[in-house]
């Protein structure tokens, strides 16, 4: 139960952003990402303006910049990939600091970096202001495929249970003198993973029985009514609307 009382990405608070219904935030972030991706990569000013917009949202949500910064680490693999493109890219080349780089490669790298960074930052803001289970209620309200939403819900609920089971299996292995040290131990780990899969599958069956016993008929019942007012929709959609205006102005 390492996650503590709240999910690690969530930053509890009562700001206007926290209080918006999840479906509004989800749609706003999605629309924002579309506008960002649709922006031609030559429009440097537009990207700067998008970053400022996210800064405004962060300030309104009282999410510290350092908090967002720390969680941006997840982007590092993409950044490394982006840095590789100019090196291995083809076409016209220029020399920067003694390194021969491809010009189309540089553009491609900038394109990936700028758009991914904005997208990741926007997602971090969403996660910091919305509890995971509430995000899923939003997804349910937006009529995302109900089966996918339910799968995500159960993943969220049973992650800790399965991690705990995994820990117990590791303790059982180690109590009998086993420690994974090199690749010859992979079969043992693989068998444990197989056993864990079967246990989880059986748990799934029991959970399904429990759901049937309480009248489940394929759809999750609506327990919390989280309908959004026109005002709340307008507040949330101000972000993509502003981004769209920036895109129009820099055309």
């Amino acid at each position: 139960m390492g996650a503590g009382h709240h999910h690690q990405l969530y930053l509890p608070g009562g700001s206007v952003v926290h209080r918006l219904p999840p479906q509004c935030k989800l749609l706003a972030i999605f629309a924002f990402a579309i506008v960002v991706v649709a922006t031609p990569r030559e429009r440097f000013w537009a990207f700067a303006a998008y970053a400022v917009l996210l800064g405004v949202v962060a300030a309104a949500a009282r999410v510290p910049v350092t908090y967002v910064g720390r969680r941006m680490v997840i982007e590092v693999p993409f950044v490394l990939f982006a840095f590789l493109i100019p090196v291995i890219g083809l076409g016209e080349r220029i020399t920067v600091l003694g390194l021969s780089l491809s010009v189309p490669g540089l553009w491609a790298a900038w394109n990936i970096l700028a758009k991914a960074t904005l997208g990741v930052a926007a997602s971090i803001l969403l996660a910091a202001t919305t509890e995971p289970r509430v995000i899923l209620i939003g997804a349910q309200r937006l009529r995302l495929p109900s089966l996918l939403v339910q799968i995500a819900m159960f993943m969220l609920r049973y992650m800790d249970v399965i991690m705990e089971e995994m820990r117990r299996m590791r303790v059982a292995r180690e109590s009998r003198g086993f420690e994974a040290r090199n690749f010859r131990h992979i079969p043992v780990i693989a068998r444990s993973a197989g056993a864990l899969f079967i246990r989880s599958y059986e748990r799934g069956e029991r959970v399904h029985l429990a759901m049937l016993s309480r009248g489940y008929s394929g759809r999750m019942p609506i327990i919390q009514d989280m309908s959004a007012s026109a005002h709340q929709w307008a507040t949330a959609l101000a972000l993509p609307a502003a981004a769209l205006a920036v895109l129009g102005l820099t055309w």
Binding site: R133, M153, F154, L156, R157, Y158, V161, R203, R206, V207, L209, A210, M211
Partner: peptide, 8 residues
């Protein structure tokens, strides 16, 4: 844990 499958 089989019976309590919802987030809260």
């Amino acid at each position: 844990d089989d019976q309590l499958f919802m987030p809260t």
